[in-house]
Computed example of a mutant assay.
Amino acid sequence: MNKDTGRRATIVDVAKKAGLSKSTVARVLAGSSNISQDAAERVQAAVLATGYERNHLAVGMRSGRSGLLGLVIPDITNPFWAEVARGAQDQAARQGVSLLVFSSDWDADKEAAHLRALCQARVDGAIINPVADNLADLDRFGMPFVLIGSSAERFPDTSSVGSDIVQGVRLGLDVLLAQGHVQPALILGPKSRLARARFLRAVHEHCIERDVDPSILMTEDSDYTVEGGRSAMKRLLQAHQNGQHLAVFCANDLMALGGILAIRDAGLSCPQDVSILGFDGIPSGAFSWPGLTTIEKDGRRIGSTAVTALYAEIAGRAEHERIYVPCRLLERGSLADLSEMATARLVAKG
């Protein structure tokens, strides 16, 4: 509202307040480069003084852009995907656009319904963690898009952004080895997920490089949830009856947090009896007891990078490449350091 007249402020009000022409004000608001610093500052002050807000619908009709982007993620309740959404939202805000967020719940039909809704909303483009196996299912919606997540690697000729899973898994295994855990057990996701295959392949490659048979590692599959991890850890504890220290590398943090609960349920302690390493870096891992040591995937950076890549796609200058965001170690308290004990055992055997 115009603070002086009590009605909705117009660009004419801004021009009058700034002492500039309407066309100059319009060019300033459109972000034109050939504008003096003085004119830009006068327009900014006039906008604040009048309470002017741009009519994005009218701007979109003139420019062919809606000022809206879409984001379809698989599970909004998973804190990692919430971090991705936050990163995308922050970057979209810096671009002066809004973000519509949908959760597919790993359901291809829901994904398709969300994409139809985004088309109807006339979004300028979409960021998608693809559930559908056929890229044509996405192409038919006729909008620029960028893929995110491990499942995007099924489409190497499409622009995508995701964590460097291989680097992250190798980092986790190197940390475990350095702390004396030479044969960690694994809690993996469902066999239907590409992320599980990528994680397990990285483990196998790491083992083969060390001349270790990967089949000797205990593994359990579960859903990527707290309860899934709790059940998988319970099964591992039942199978591990030799009294030696057990280390477990989980494919995501929710499963790792469930694993800590199962350790407690069994009357054991973490990390005194069982060490556990997560993968994601969700904030709640800092508040568990003990704090969860994990390999952090930078969700916010993935989201913001995806928005930048999407704008390149919209502008028709995308290179259609896979952008890998590196992972890093977050050390807390869920890993016991057995390196001195491992060294002592080697000396004793020698």
Rank of each mutant, 00 (worst) to 15 (best):
H206R: 15
V146H: 05
R301D: 01
F80Y: 15
E313V: 15
K297S: 09
A92N: 07
D174Q: 14
L188H: 04
A232T: 01
D107W: 06
T77D: 06
S163H: 10
I11C: 06
A266C: 04
V169A: 09
N242Q: 11
A247C: 12
G229I: 11
H320C: 09
I165A: 11
K349W: 07
G67A: 09
T158K: 13
E205I: 10
T77Q: 13
A126D: 02
V182Y: 01
A251L: 05
V166H: 12
G60L: 07
Q183T: 15
V14F: 00
A88T: 04
A152R: 04
A40Q: 13
H240R: 14
L338S: 12
M341W: 09
R317C: 10
S215N: 08
A312E: 15
Q238S: 12
S231Y: 00
I187N: 03
I208F: 00
S304L: 09
I260P: 02
K110S: 08
I73G: 05
A82Q: 08
R193C: 02
L254N: 10
V12N: 09
V72N: 06
I187R: 10
V203G: 07
N55T: 06
G6E: 03
T343F: 00
L48N: 12
V72T: 07
E153S: 14
D298C: 08
V182M: 09
V325W: 02
V248E: 05
T343D: 04
G180V: 06
R170A: 06
V123P: 04
I208W: 03
A232I: 00
S33Q: 14
R193P: 00
G51F: 00
N134G: 02
E220F: 03
A178C: 03
G333T: 08
D107L: 12
T293V: 08
A46W: 01
K3T: 09
P74R: 04
I128W: 00
D280E: 14
A152P: 05
A117Q: 14
V161C: 06
M341R: 15
E209A: 15
A306S: 14
D90F: 11
R210Y: 00
I314V: 13
P130H: 05
L115R: 03
R116D: 06
F155V: 02
K16D: 08
P271M: 07
H320N: 15
S21L: 11
I208S: 06
G350W: 11
Q89M: 11
I76D: 03
C270K: 09
N78S: 13
T305V: 13
V59C: 01
L277D: 07
V169D: 00
S304R: 05
T10E: 01
L57I: 15
R332G: 06
A49Y: 03
D4Y: 05
K191I: 01
E331H: 15
T24P: 00
I282Y: 02
F279Q: 08
G168H: 10
A315D: 14
R300Y: 00
Y224M: 12
A26I: 10
R230I: 00
R230W: 00
Q241F: 03
V182G: 04
Y311T: 03
N34L: 10
I165H: 08
R264C: 01
D90G: 05
H245Y: 01
A30W: 02
I263F: 01
E340W: 07
M1R: 12
E220S: 14
E227I: 12
V307E: 03
L261Y: 03
P130E: 01
K191M: 07
G6F: 05
R196P: 02
